[in-house]
Amino acid sequence: MTRWLGVVAMLGVLAGLVMAFLVAPREMTQGNVQRIMYVHVPAVWVAYLAFLVVLLGSVAYLWSRAPAADRTAHAAAEVGVVFLGVNIATGAIWGKPTWGTWWTWDARLTSVAVVFVIFIGYLLVRQMTDDPERGARFAAVVGIVGALNIPLVHFSVYWWRTLHQPPTFAKPGPAAASSAIGAALLVNFVGLLLLCAYFIAKRYDLLRAQQEATA
């Protein structure tokens, strides 16, 4: 089951690469560098969906104490952090040639970084708690607080950066998104979503095997 998901995910990612490199048009001002957007933007969408899974899994675990719910939340948090890391890394790589800097305290960059740190905290709690069952409960509370905090982080950082100073650079990306660009984004989103689902399923299996081995 997991293996087939992996095969489908691989095909999805390949289709995404084909769309990004061959089908989508070359951007007028930025050139080929702009194609990194097809990984950069879907990665953050997928990461936030993974954190939604963390929220649901955490609530379900505290409600039912079913180990399956905890494993789902744990796996989704790890994979979400990886995808958010990919988003930040590709953003920096894209930012250097277009903005001239790896990092800037822009609203969206900052809020993504804060969410990244919150969910690293989620993983740390688990790691630093000796009893795994206790770690699962603690992590679930952090997961709920962290996920509910995401909208607050977004609003606060947005107001912090945009009310007092105007944006110093134009937002990157296509000015008028053509249909080929939209299609390429969509295909890449589906591809990365499948990849994310595959990673979560794989981590879930590993966590279960680990728990069965230690039990």
Binding site: V114, S156, V157
Partner: peptide, 14 residues
């Protein structure tokens, strides 16, 4: 502090 500070970013900014 590692857990608390990032969660409190919105409150701090406000």
């Amino acid at each position: 502090p590692v857990l608390l500070l990032p969660v409190l970013v919105p409150v701090l900014l406000a």
